[in-house]
């Protein structure tokens, strides 16, 4: 074991967990040790958003987050969204609008869309584009993603 490794404790999708973590390990690799693959490294530069997770309720790029720094914090991944067995409104809207093709970037977009709608329940198209500008989709499902976010906002609005 690396001499710079350290035992950390954190909450992962609502459950307390612990792990022995080397200083260089990033959060995406830490999550892989828990068999969570929804956050995934692609560009490795925080630009594509494929590795989006929440740390203490704040969206971060997992590939730019040192795993040791989540000690004592709460980490939430895309796998938490359908824990009830039901898809979230955002997830269902992504399916209904066909807002993905290969699916590799999708968890990141879904997570960011959730964050956007938390902060702004009725975003206009410019606000959606501004908020999602840090996520890339090489299949370019952007028009459908914009529609899905609007549709999710409609579904989440209290009747």
């Amino acid at each position: 074991m690396d001499s710079t490794s350290r035992q950390i404790r954190f909450t992962l999708n609502g459950r307390p967990v612990s792990a022995r973590v080397e200083s260089h390990l990033d959060l995406v690799d830490l999550l892989r040790r828990f068999d969570l693959f929804g956050a995934r490294e692609s560009c490795g530069q925080g630009l594509c958003g494929c590795c989006t997770v929440l740390v203490d309720g704040v969206a971060v790029s997992g590939c730019l987050t040192l795993a040791q720094l989540v000690d004592g914090k709460s980490v939430t991944t895309v796998e938490s969204l359908d824990e009830s067995g039901e898809l979230s409104h955002v997830q269902q809207a992504f399916i209904d609008e066909g807002a993905f093709q290969c699916g590799f970037c999708t968890p990141g977009f879904v997570m960011m869309a959730h964050e956007l709608l938390k902060q702004n329940p009725d975003p206009n198209e410019t606000e959606i584009r501004d908020y999602l500008a840090g996520n890339l989709c090489r299949c370019a499902a952007y028009p459908e993603i914009i529609r899905a976010v609007r549709s999710a906002a409609d579904r989440m609005r209290p009747a």
């Binding site: 925080g46 989006t52 971060v60």
Partner: peptide, 8 residues
């Protein structure tokens, strides 16, 4: 930059 960068 982007939202995630600005967050941290």
């Amino acid at each position: 930059a982007n939202v995630r960068v600005r967050n941290v």
